[in-house]
Write a protein that binds this DNA or RNA. Structure first.
Lengths: 327, 327
DNA sequence: TTGTACGCGTTATCAT
DNA sequence: ATGATAACGCGTACAA
């Protein structure tokens, strides 16, 4: 392998100078710089990230924890993270943690070797665990979900308000019997969106009907399809359903269509996230949009600032209601 | 920071012994091992991946090049790669290279610092470039697409045969006017699938109609929707369409449904890949399935073997036709 | 079975 | 503006 010493020798300078060239140090005479650069090319020199890390105690690598890679929702956030990271010469390692084994693995790999400068969690479960574990001084930020503990700053939308807005929209369309399909598991966002749903109903003076709120175990459309069937089997079934995810909304749509109902005439459906699928499906989904890319970018920038020793407050980004055909 | 020296001191052994414990070296007396492990815990010791890399000249990190992260098709392959990698204590860095800038970035980050032990490309464009660039001895394997040059081994299905099978199926259903929606850009798989399409027609004694084959610029359903409209506007329009991607098939479906046609009665549609969307859409897609997870696993194992100095032949995995409603 | 000592390729400090 | 040199933390011959 060719190292800085070799370059130094060929260029007739010291390794210190080679290092300076490598790091764009201003105090290098232009002619010297040229000599060094020529030597580098001539020898086919490449820095060793490892050696650099060892000397600087920085890896320029951050870990991104994601629950489910097959959901493009997370892919979009990841893109935002990567964008911001690359602007600052950082790389992002993606780790999917849906299974228990993967979750464990992620945390060992996170804490065992000092491979990462920091971590960004897009997964409620991981975020909660991050808050309860000794981070050994590693920086962490949560995306989408705030940690119960306030040590980890987060970037998210106002979930409660967003859910309320969605339900208010349904109310404005004249609906009085509004159901909800939520997800279990104890994530904070599901609690918040549930609260938002209640807020809207309360404002409209409509009493809560617990049997109008269904919980599914995972963000998978078949589960929502079943939940919707249960809702539709009620004595006075909902005329509209608010779901906490577009995938669940698709399930609701399939259940309604399968039952011979017309959407939105017989049953209105509102989703959440505005993934690409939302516009594709027939009828196209009315849904709450989150600024996914921006959220990823902000999360990464937040982490970057933490790495420089700054303390970073959590931030809330704006959501919006995208009205299409389903409601 | 606490290093091996500190652990050694506390345990009353040498750093060599600590290193041996770290690497599960058999020649360490059990009692010694225990002493060392206790010292590690007591001090909160963590290895430095950087220092280890510097000493071993291995990073235990591979780079995965992916064209489009929002397509779950690639996410599934990535999962396979990660699975196999983790079994051997490797990490996988994912890099999306759809844009020119990202493509350039990927290659600089790949070749500049010696950060990665190897690279797996799932992107035709990247694979072609890998074959034309000085890899500096870095191992590379292609997933999904063979490199024109034979230096880079690949894992893929038999694309030509798979396409032929799909078209043969349509022929078996009585179709004689069969169109195709292919993708431009010069990827090998599109040429192969085109050949497979021709093979099937030839066997059936049906002359080629060039106007039956449409090319789109990217795997995006709106483009396929337009292409399908053009096909349907022909004097004797196809009664069936074979597409090289499920996303394109969805576009064809939307065009057909939008034109008031019934699928598969008036127009049969066959997709490719069997992504989750294929089963979700109405009517559910008949499509060619690729063993995505296994392909990823095999690609990673192939890379691992290369890293150990073995030479690895390319491999072809079996495909299958999944018959659903659309054809 | 265990210890000694050096090398891995950078950066950073202190001189000059 | 540049050079000499000591870290950085681990693996590994070679010895013992």
């Amino acid at each position: 392998v060719v190292a800085t010493v070799d370059v130094a020798r060929l260029a007739g300078v010291s390794t210190a100078t080679v290092s300076r060239v490598l790091n764009d140090h201003p105090s290098v005479r232009p002619e010297t710089r040229v000599k060094v650069e020529q030597a580098m090319r001539a020898l086919g020199f490449r820095v060793s990230a490892a050696a650099r890390s060892l000397a600087t105690a920085e890896t320029k690598l951050v870990l991104a924890l994601i629950p489910d890679l097959s959901r493009s929702f997370f892919a979009d956030i990841f893109r935002g993270i990567a964008t911001a990271a690359h602007e600052h010469s950082y790389e992002v390692l993606l780790c999917e943690t849906n299974s228990d084994r993967a979750h464990e693995r992620a945390f060992t790999s996170l804490l065992d070797a000092r491979r990462y400068d920091g971590v960004i969690s897009m997964s409620p479960m991981d975020t909660q665990r991050l808050a309860n574990v000794d981070l050994r001084g590693m920086s962490a930020v949560a995306c989408l979900e705030s940690a119960p503990d306030a040590r980890i700053p987060h970037v998210s939308i106002d979930d409660q308000r967003a859910a309320k807005d969605a339900v208010l929209y349904l109310l404005s369309k004249g609906h009085r019997r509004i159901g909800m399909i939520n997800v279990g598991g104890g994530a904070l966002y599901s609690a918040l969106r549930h609260d938002g749903y209640r807020d809207a109903l309360r404002e409209a003076g409509i009493p809560e009907r617990p049997d109008y709120v269904e919980f599914v175990d995972a963000i998978e459309y078949p589960l929502a399809e079943l939940a919707t069937r249960r809702l539709l089997a009620l004595d006075a079934p909902p005329t509209a359903i608010f779901t906490v995810s577009d995938l669940l909304a698709i399930g609701a749509l399939k259940a309604a269509l399968g039952a011979g109902l017309r959407v939105p005439e017989n049953l209105a459906v509102v989703g959440f996230d505005d993934v690409s699928l939302a516009a594709l499906f027939e009828p196209a989904l009315t849904t709450v949009a989150q600024p996914r890319h921006a959220m990823g970018e902000q999360a990464m920038r937040m982490l970057l600032r933490q790495l420089q020793g700054e303390s970073t407050p959590s931030i809330t980004l704006p959501h919006s209601l995208v009205v299409r055909r389903s409601a």
